[in-house]
Amino acid sequence: MTAKARAVRKPPYPLRARILDIVSHGGLALVALVFLFPFFWMVSNAVRGNNEVLAVPPRLLPNEYQWGNFLEAWLHLPFGRFFLNSFIVAGGVTAITVVVSCLAAYAFARLKFPGREGILVAYLGTLMIPQVMLVIPLFLIVSRIGWINTYQGMILPMAFSSFGAFLLRQFFLSIPRELEEAALIDGASRLRILVSIIVPLALPAIGLLALFTFIGQWNNFLWPLIVVNGLDYATLPLGLTMFQTQQGTAWNYIMAGAALSMIPGVVLAVVLQQVIYKGITLGSGFGGR
């Protein structure tokens, strides 16, 4: 056999392996369907009449498609305002979290200072405290400063997470120290090293942190509920509750609003997915040093 013929011959694919593949792919598809069903159900309910939402027995697809529900929901409440508020709050928290986490993570990963390990453990210890426990003390602080119904009152208490610092620290530790030493000799300051060397190499981890933080804050209900009253500073999750009134609940509008409010998160996930993939190939094993 010539070398060429050998190169193009396909490896054997026995029946057993084929059946195994079909079974495992089938199983995975089933799990994916289970995860996707709530989203389907949301959209399906968003385009039917409110009386049909609670119909028994439930129907998978609406009798009559009411695509206008999206527009009606949007016009019924100041959704543009809610979107803007959500963007400002989630974006602000994400920006501060990423910057602060990068700085803290670099200090914990690379700088030598007395008590570093102890501070790190204390920092991590705060992960153990449930968010709910912090709500009352945070509220007292924020209301005393007079930050009720302000963006800073919604953003700052949420913007410092030890999770981000820990996640990035672990990633920074995997970046070869020699790169930093080379940069030190090249004349870079610590901050310059962080900005020009570490951050570009840690983009996958930073992208991940940004994504988690943004989606987490986009969906955050509890804290805005506590520091905001009225429509002016309400975020999307708060806005959606306003379809629940004493006269009844407009489930179809809630679902339409929820579907609309998912769009930015999905877009962000798709965009950052590219960043995360790109980062992974760029930094893989740092073989390109």
């Binding site: 030493e181 870079a188 190499l201 740092f286 390109g288 040093r289």
Partner: peptide, 20 residues
């Protein structure tokens, strides 16, 4: 003196080129 003020250059075993 910090490394940058010593007027030296260093070549590392693993090259330490900035991958990005």
């Amino acid at each position: 003196l910090p490394p940058k003020d010593r007027d030296i250059a260093m070549v590392f075993q693993n090259y330490a080129l900035y991958p990005h």
